[in-house]
């Protein structure tokens, strides 16, 4: 209770000139359960909830837009007052955006076809195989830079379809998203052969965004962590 009160007080203090500025344009993309987007319902998902609460605490405002992940990243890189979430923060991307996060910790796994299981004990074991991921995936780009045999589909679920059709040996996906996508596509999916990498999913904003505005959002997010408000949302898998 005391902590909640502290957060509210902090929120009050954080209402700054940001409230007077034009809303930031936030671009996101479907990545359930972090962000769910459908034609019939308002967008939802726990990463969206985190973002919404963070803006609320900071006394700032945003407008939501939707684009495929790769295009969303490019838009935020090029357009002022534009941000993208929840994307993998990585050293390769560090200089192109200003970052606030993490809004989610993602574990990523190698998935094999249920009828063609593979033994993957370390990342090196995956090197002989063809692997699907999707455009905009920080991890897909990372493995590509390490000369893994990557196929980057335009959307995450297409990577799963490639696995199902036998066009690749492995699919990499956020372990929270993978079973949801498989269920939606009515496809069988085993547990990942190996959960091999962790990324900090964050909000990445155009580099020209006001540092004071970003600092207020960052402070709000840290306050959410300190208060325990985010603990349930970001409950980590072991």
């Amino acid at each position: 209770m005391v902590m909640r009160l502290a957060v509210r007080l902090l929120a009050g203090l954080m209402v700054t000139s940001a409230a007077m500025a034009a809303p930031l344009k936030l671009i996101t993309f479907p990545i359930p359960p972090l962000v769910r987007i459908s034609d019939h319902q308002a967008p939802s998902g726990y990463a969206l909830n985190v973002i919404h609460r963070m803006f609320e605490l900071a006394g700032d405002d945003y407008e939501l837009d939707f684009q495929p992940e790769k295009r969303a990243i490019r838009s935020a890189t090029e357009a002022p007052n534009t941000c993208v979430f929840p994307i993998d923060r990585s050293q390769e991307r560090e200089a192109s955006l200003s970052w606030i996060g993490p809004v989610s910790i993602s574990r990523h796994g190698f998935y094999s076809h249920p009828d063609r299981p593979l033994t993957i004990r370390t990342l090196a074991d995956a090197r002989p195989y063809t692997i699907s991921s999707h455009l905009g995936s920080g991890l897909g780009e990372y493995l590509q830079s390490l000369d893994f045999r990557m196929h980057l589909a335009s959307k995450n679920h297409l990577g799963l379809l490639m696995l199902n059709a036998g066009r690749v040996d492995l699919w990499i996906s956020d372990t929270r998203s993978a079973p949801i996508l498989a269920e939606r596509l009515n496809l069988r999916l085993n547990a990942p052969e190996l959960v091999f990498f962790t990324t900090l999913r964050s909000l990445g904003c155009n580099r020209q965004t006001s540092p004071e505005r970003l600092q207020a959002l960052e402070n709000a997010l840290l306050a959410m962590y300190s208060s325990g408000e985010l603990q349930a949302i970001l409950d980590l898998e072991p």
């Binding site: 923060r89 996060g101 910790i105 900090l200 840290l222 962590y225 970001l234 980590l236």
Partner: peptide
């Protein structure tokens, strides 16, 4: 960034 995040957030990331 990861060790900073674990120190800042208190999450057991690694």
């Amino acid at each position: 960034k990861k060790i900073q995040a674990q120190m800042d957030t208190g999450l057991n990331i690694y």
